[in-house]
Design a protein around this nucleic acid. Structure first.
Lengths: 97, 97
DNA sequence: CGGCATCCGTTCTGATACTG
DNA sequence: CAGTATCAGAACGGATGCCG
């Protein structure tokens, strides 16, 4: 399963460059990413976790609190993602319609 | 349609770094990419062509000869693809199993 | 050789309802 | 809040056959 949400998720866990990658709760991600269903978000997060890209931290509390952040492997993707976004912007400029 | 073959196709149209991107015929790509069906290869090539990443050149001959090469936009992806491959290799080293 | 159309099984997605 | 279960529809992908 490739998953079209992975890049968006990684992007959301990347934050601005130069800064430490943010830690986000499940509901934060859900709100931050429009049109993603709960099921898909979990599925892709699990997948990214298995791939060693995302770290999942469970805080034993009531109500439950689960946080996600990029691993060092995931952080290594940040410059590439940024380059990709720049490339995409360049595309838009070349063909605005 | 996302397409899991696009990266492989771009990679095949990239060639070694430092060198001009190669021009390849349809059948060359088909042979170079194992397990890709003709349908998928065409579909993804068309998609890449629409995206302005791949240039398609028809030579009016008998038998027909159609060649594909990266556009300048596509060439801009080469360093990113390379970085991505390096990243993937790094992953393998960290978890060999 | 390069490409398109069609059928058909597999996979992916989204909406909904339910749990701890 | 965070996650699971299920089910129907959409998208994907492969095999096959036909065309210029």
């Amino acid at each position: 399963m490739e998953g079209r949400w992975k890049l968006v998720i990684i992007h959301n866990l990347s934050g601005p460059e130069g800064v430490k990658t943010p830690i986000k709760r499940f509901s934060e991600l859900e709100r931050a990413i429009p049109n993603v269903s709960q099921k898909m978000l979990i599925q892709q997060l699990r997948c990214l976790e298995r791939d060693g890209i995302v770290q999942r931290t469970i805080h034993p509390q009531v109500p439950p609190k689960v946080e996600y952040q990029l691993t060092s492997l995931g952080e290594a993707l940040r410059p590439m993602l940024r380059a990709l976004l720049d490339w995409a912007n360049l595309r838009k400029q070349q063909s605005p319609g």
